[in-house]
């Protein structure tokens, strides 16, 4: 079983106890996310839609590559990979 380090973006940190990264096991990106979701209530639905699909306003990266350009949620995770969750953020003016 591979272990990846997941970088938690600021909007989701309150759901995981405020930490900036978490290491979790999984063979695919989906495995890792589901594992985080099992440990942290409310986390998974911010990233995945009701049908389990990756939400349109969230991007997941393995290192610097968007999983949409690899194999989506089924993209394979290798030991030591860093997974970045990048949500759309509106703020700036006010």
């Amino acid at each position: 079983m591979s272990h990846a380090t997941v970088r938690i973006p600021a909007p989701l940190r309150p759901l995981v106890g405020g930490v900036s990264e978490i290491t979790a096991p999984g063979e695919t990106v989906e495995d890792v996310l589901v594992r985080l979701g099992a440990d942290h209530a409310g986390f998974l639905e911010r990233v995945l839609g009701p049908g389990g699909e990756l939400r349109a306003f969230v991007n997941i990266y393995i290192d610097d590559r968007n999983v949409r350009s690899i194999d989506g949620l089924r993209s394979k995770v290798s030991d030591g990979d860093t997974i970045h969750i990048v949500p759309a953020v509106a703020g700036g003016r006010r």
């Binding site: 909007p11 989701l12 911010r46 939400r55 349109a56 306003f57 991007n59 949500p87 759309a88 953020v89 509106a90 703020g91």
Partner: peptide
């Protein structure tokens, strides 16, 4: 980001 999030899911 093809579409904006719906208001209830926009963290901002």
């Amino acid at each position: 980001f093809p579409q904006p999030p719906p208001p209830e899911l926009a963290p901002s």
